[in-house]
Design a protein around this nucleic acid. Sequence first.
DNA 1: TGAATTATTTGACTTTTGTCAATAACGAAT
DNA 2: ATTCGTTATTGACAAAAGTCAAATAATTCA
Lengths: 195, 195
Amino acid sequence: MQTPDHTYGVFMQFLTAHFNADEEQLKTICSKFSRKTAKRNEILLASGEVCKHLYFVNSGCLRIYLLDLKGNESTRFLVTEGKFGTSFPSYRLQEPSVAAIQSLELSDLFYISYHDFQALLDEIPAWEHIYRIALEQEYISSIQRIESLISMNATMRYQALMESNPSIIQRFPSKIIADYLGISQETLSRLKSKK
Amino acid sequence: MQTPDHTYGVFMQFLTAHFNADEEQLKTICSKFSRKTAKRNEILLASGEVCKHLYFVNSGCLRIYLLDLKGNESTRFLVTEGKFGTSFPSYRLQEPSVAAIQSLELSDLFYISYHDFQALLDEIPAWEHIYRIALEQEYISSIQRIESLISMNATMRYQALMESNPSIIQRFPSKIIADYLGISQETLSRLKSKK
DNA sequence: TGAATTATTTGACTTTTGTCAATAACGAAT
DNA sequence: ATTCGTTATTGACAAAAGTCAAATAATTCA
């Protein structure tokens, strides 16, 4: 991938929003990203592997999830269009991943290796700045998620999700919404019908 | 606070670990921090207020916690010696805080305002770099906390905490450990006696 | 030190949530 | 449209965790 153009879609919007003034930097950044299509339900990372890529979801959706010995799944994150996602602890530390990554839909993805990501941090100070801002946002989101998990019951967590992010409730199977909320799908089904 | 010296304790260790080569930057950074002592159980931030300070805990301990209408408390974070802590979403966005901050012990604190923190980010590129690294670590910790909350029951979460951070179990009242794990103090007491 | 406060444990009971199983509904792909 | 496989709902029951109350233990600090 060498020169950015309109076919980049949402990824192009992200880049120009941050680097519109600097064609040179933009080309450097694009040169480090590759693009791929992931099929519905395709596994991009199995648990136990070291996570090699950070993904930008141009279209579709990724799910970062845990799978225990009994086959129970827990959704750590859902990553929709215009967002970056990876198995962060594994990607950052280059250690085996606890979580797996799955494409929930037919997805159009840009991705960058850890090595190239580090190179961008060194080469382009603005890249570190943007990354820092993004980390702050994700950290705030994760704090809010922790708060809902330690201070609310299943009903309150579902209501809070309906208010903060109603689109994902419609978009994804309720089994996955239940995993994300840390409750069983039967419990979710019941609290939906009661209300 | 102008010139750093040995009375700074752990804070000095943190600074020299990152800026040992640069006396100039060190002085700039120190000039933005103030120091204060907080009494046991002193409230440093009440919920609803905008969080003005980021704290470095030189000695003692801070607790970032939630308080609901019924008086139930939930501990978002415990910040021990050598760590930075604040009500992060409020400090970063300069919005009213959901959480409160309390000094659990007699604590020796360094603190910096949001404005001065932003100034350091602009003035000293290495400050943004260090901050980014710290954010990554905190974000990874919060992801691991989310995972334990969505995929483990009370017993497993307690066991995991005993393995990952046994010192805080001994140091703090079990009521606070229970809050931190998202369970009632009675449940914690029972699972301790069963094992 | 000793009174007062705070924290912890335990019991009895309730509520919430999970599990298993059966059925119903839905959706993708031919 | 029909079939197959997945997803959602519901019931019956079990397990986990919460609540309230009382008794005991431990701490604080005056």
